[in-house]
Amino acid sequence: MYVSPTSPVGLCLDMCSERERREREQCGRIHPFEMQKGQSNRRNYGKGSRQIADPGGTVKEYSRPAAGKELYSPRDLRPPAILLKTVQYLLLEIWGNVDEKDSSSLSLAYSFVFDRLRAVRQDLTVQRIRGTEGAAILEGSLGFLLCAPYLVRDLSLQVYCATLHSTQVRESFAELMECYSKGGRFPRQAEFQALLLLYDLGNMNTMHRALQLPHSIKNATEVRLAFAINRSYLERNWVRLFRLVHQLDCLQACAFYRHLPDCRNQIIRTYTHAYSSRNCHFPLTKLTSLIAVDSPFQASNKCKRQGLVVISGECEFVVFHKASIKDVDLEGPGREIQLVEKKKENLSWAEIMMGQEKFTG
């Protein structure tokens, strides 16, 4: 572990200090996940009821720095082992038991885990913890941050702010890369170098930095695949890009997920110019495969949305005509059965976030 000699050292051996827990009890700021068993399920629980926290299940909440306010007393800061324990608890115990088909349950869990992981990174940053222990904490946090946009895609803007979420992803990646730069043994370094390349698809600065990596990391299978996908994107070779995307595992697919709408729009525009003719009918089933959507119905909708004509019948065809295509705002990413969900196989989302190798041997 690398710790700056001038940084404070955490002394809190719980996921939340006793001082904060008591303060939040008095202010009524105990989250339902933190209440003593059974309390949050009472139907008559209201504003007049005193909230009682479960000491073993209360997790430090994120607090914004304020001028003249000392937020970072060593008694409130958690050392690396406790921060890692907190990440594991949030993913395996909280997220691992959420009903992902229930929007209210999903909303409650997302807001809680997102906020508490933000507080974890805050403790990490204040203590300037880097190296192997810092990396393990950030890797677990990033597992959640990369998967969550797929899982909470249908939640309201009040619950899931894509801009704030993306900011946390980028800051976490930046700190993780700094941890790696301190040297040490990082079993998941190649995996996360590849994830960054996929998340920052087409970013020349990210690619240039990755090209400076040690030979053993740069030539790892997952990094080479991520480089190949970036190269296909920059060359606008969409057919090759989607062929390579099929090779991604579940976590990698989640990192790439946000780029799908743009890549699909681009391939449709490319084919519209390449095959532009009112007499050229392109099989819809072939296009469905090329853009890696789950059904011809989805492919048809994407074409129609961009102004193209889809001819119905025993076989459906797309008429690529460049005079018909129109500029449209990108759709938000939707459900992906082939590219994401089937790759999860028998693992839970919590297990995907924590790292597949921990559960598959």
Rank of each mutant, 00 (worst) to 15 (best):
S17G: 06
Y233I: 05
L13S: 12
R236A: 12
Q193H: 15
Y45I: 12
D327T: 13
S4T: 08
E222F: 05
M353V: 04
I94K: 06
L145N: 03
K101F: 01
H31K: 06
K344A: 02
I352S: 00
C147I: 09
S49N: 15
I217L: 08
Q193A: 15
R170Q: 14
A109I: 00
S324F: 06
H165Q: 05
L330N: 01
S4I: 05
T125W: 07
L176E: 02
R305G: 04
E175H: 12
R153I: 00
W238A: 11
A81I: 11
S181H: 01
G361C: 09
A67G: 10
G355V: 03
L198P: 06
R170S: 14
P79F: 03
R75I: 13
Y150I: 00
P333Q: 01
P5R: 10
T221H: 12
K101H: 03
L284R: 07
V328A: 02
G361Q: 10
G202Y: 04
V328K: 05
T221G: 10
V87L: 07
T288A: 08
Y89H: 14
L83Q: 10
G57I: 07
R24E: 06
R118V: 05
T58K: 09
T163G: 08
A174N: 09
A194D: 07
P333W: 01
L108W: 00
I291D: 03
L108S: 08
G184A: 00
S7A: 15
E336S: 08
P74Q: 02
R243D: 13
K101C: 00
T58R: 08
D262W: 14
M177K: 11
R278G: 14
C147V: 15
V9K: 14
F33A: 05
K286A: 15
L176W: 01
E18K: 11
N237I: 08
R43G: 15
Y199Q: 10
M35D: 08
E314V: 06
A66N: 12
V126R: 09
C12M: 08
D327G: 07
S104G: 02
T132A: 12
P296W: 07
Q36A: 13
V169M: 03
P261T: 04
T221S: 15
R75Y: 11
S63G: 12
D294A: 11
P333C: 01
E70C: 14
F192I: 11
D154W: 00
R185A: 11
K60S: 15
S107A: 07
G334D: 06
P74F: 03
I291G: 07
L106M: 00
E314W: 02
N203G: 09
S295L: 08
C16Y: 00
R128G: 05
L234T: 14
A210L: 00
R78Q: 11
A136R: 13
A323L: 08
